[in-house]
């Protein structure tokens, strides 16, 4: 019975994205004591997180069961429309300007200097790929969706593009790659670049290694191209292939999501 209520509370938080204890107590018609008991277990299980200070604490989902975010819907939609201006970086210089604000924001929100270097580096390398691998080759909308939400000891980041995707990019260097899953595995584990004859291809290896060093933090990392999705809770391990699966939701370009709570 308790588990049933807890599942309903979790589903409610996931559906609403962000909600207060007062709102939940009214919705479920349960005592604050009973509600906080369920919330405490959900927090300890890292299924939800808290943002804001008393009395305006918001409860947010930490691990979404399915990827259903505005950034993902934009990247996977059949028709191309410009993202909201707050998140849209049509060119490299706009993106660089916004990227420079990430590390100072993380420091202000309570992340330590070492973690900030790794996290901002991860965000930088992933979003840099949006431009590097699609310059002069954008199929429709140029640039990337660059959405960063930073609260106290909490980061949520969505990066997406409607570019060529990892498989198409890597086939320039390795024409025998047949599937999106193979391409994603190669991109995450091998030193290879789609920009032959230049010697590149370190970015995503750095990303996984950096996320493997965030041992004290909880969170999740997702990267998807085509139907192939890598999904791993932090810290990321070296067992990459067992965390790649094919999903029903397809996108031509690339989508990444990073959630971190300290």
């Amino acid at each position: 019975m308790k588990t049933d209520t807890r599942d309903k509370i979790l589903a409610y938080i996931r559906e609403n994205k962000s909600t207060t204890a007062k709102g939940m107590a009214a919705f479920f018609i349960i005592s604050p004591q009973a509600l906080f008991k369920h919330l405490k277990i959900l927090l300890e299980s890292n299924l939800i997180g808290k943002t804001g200070a008393v009395p305006r604490v918001q409860y947010v989902p930490l691990f979404l069961e399915a990827v259903d975010t505005p950034a993902f819907r934009w990247a996977s939609a059949a028709s191309a429309v410009e993202p909201p201006p707050n998140w849209y970086c049509p060119t490299n210089d706009v993106w660089q300007g916004r990227l420079q604000r990430v590390a100072p924001s993380l420091l202000r929100s309570g992340f330590d200097t070492g973690a900030v270097g790794l996290i901002a580096g991860v965000i930088g390398e992933i979003s840099d790929n949006c431009f590097t691998h699609n310059i002069f080759a954008w199929p429709d909308i140029p640039g990337c969706w660059f959405e960063i939400e930073i609260a106290k000891k909490y980061l949520r980041c969505y990066i997406a593009d409607r570019g060529r995707g990892i498989l198409t990019s890597l086939r320039a260097a390795r024409p025998q790659l047949a599937t999106h899953t193979q391409a994603l595995l190669v991109a995450l584990t091998e030193r290879i670049s789609g920009r032959l004859p230049e010697a590149r291809g370190n970015g995503l290896k750095f990303v996984l290694a950096a996320l493997g060093q965030l041992a004290g933090d909880t969170g999740e990392f997702i990267i998807q191209s085509g139907p192939a999705r890598f999904r791993h809770q932090l810290p990321v391990s070296r067992a990459v292939s067992s965390h790649i699966s094919e999903t029903a939701a397809y996108l031509r370009g690339t989508y990444a999501e990073l959630l971190i709570k300290i």
Partner: peptide, 11 residues
């Protein structure tokens, strides 16, 4: 004194 360094820039 660098806060954030990445392989793309450094390489």
């Amino acid at each position: 004194k660098v806060l954030v360094l990445t392989p793309s820039w450094t390489d």
